[in-house]
Amino acid sequence: MKLEVSGLNSFYGQAHILFDVALGVGAGEVVALLGRNGAGKSTTFRSIVGLVAQREGQIRFEGHEVAREPTYAIVRKGLGYVPEERRIFTDLTVEENLEVGRQPKRDNAAYWTPDKLFTLFPNLGEMRNRPGGRMSGGEQQMLTIARTLMGNPSLVLLDEPSEGLSPKIVEQMANAILTMKKEGVSILLSEQNLHFARLISDRAYIMERGRIRFSGTMAELEARPDVRDQYLAV
């Protein structure tokens, strides 16, 4: 397993948010973390990269326990994180945004340069000097992913990559994720959109109220309409 999480409990102040979350991502796999709004998907991601201060449990990345390490150290080991709110640096240009994410080459992971990323996301190549604040939502979403890839991660946590995007951009996003997979990047993505997840994922977990309720391959999930109705239908 590339990433193995077990017994993860997280708290915001007095509120207990995650309950004994356990999940794993194999090398080269694309795994979807599904669930409705508020199920705890983002908190799971934030906990893995150490952005939630109060958390307990084991987080093993490439065989190393990282739960006690600060965020930057976890990320530097090759665990990339793309937040849901995009959080582009609006004052910085596209190229400068990429520069912030740049990390040294890693032996066990694909190596990304701005030029290579501009072939993956051609839109970005046409606006290298544009400030992040003057880009559309879809362009910003691509830039956040490109920015994280500049760190040459071997695994990426993608928080709701399709959220709020037009169908055409969603399709581009799915293709980009499949290209990343081809390059050998393992991916854990959170989604509310089952259709989108189905396009790209090998396996899925379903969360509800801070707990993992289902785990299986996409085919197994297909065979369980009851699970989909109970935890995903709106």
């Binding site: 640096f89 994410g101 920015r147």
Partner: peptide, 8 residues
Amino acid sequence: MVAALGVN
């Protein structure tokens, strides 16, 4: 966000 991109 800068920390989440691996900067100490």
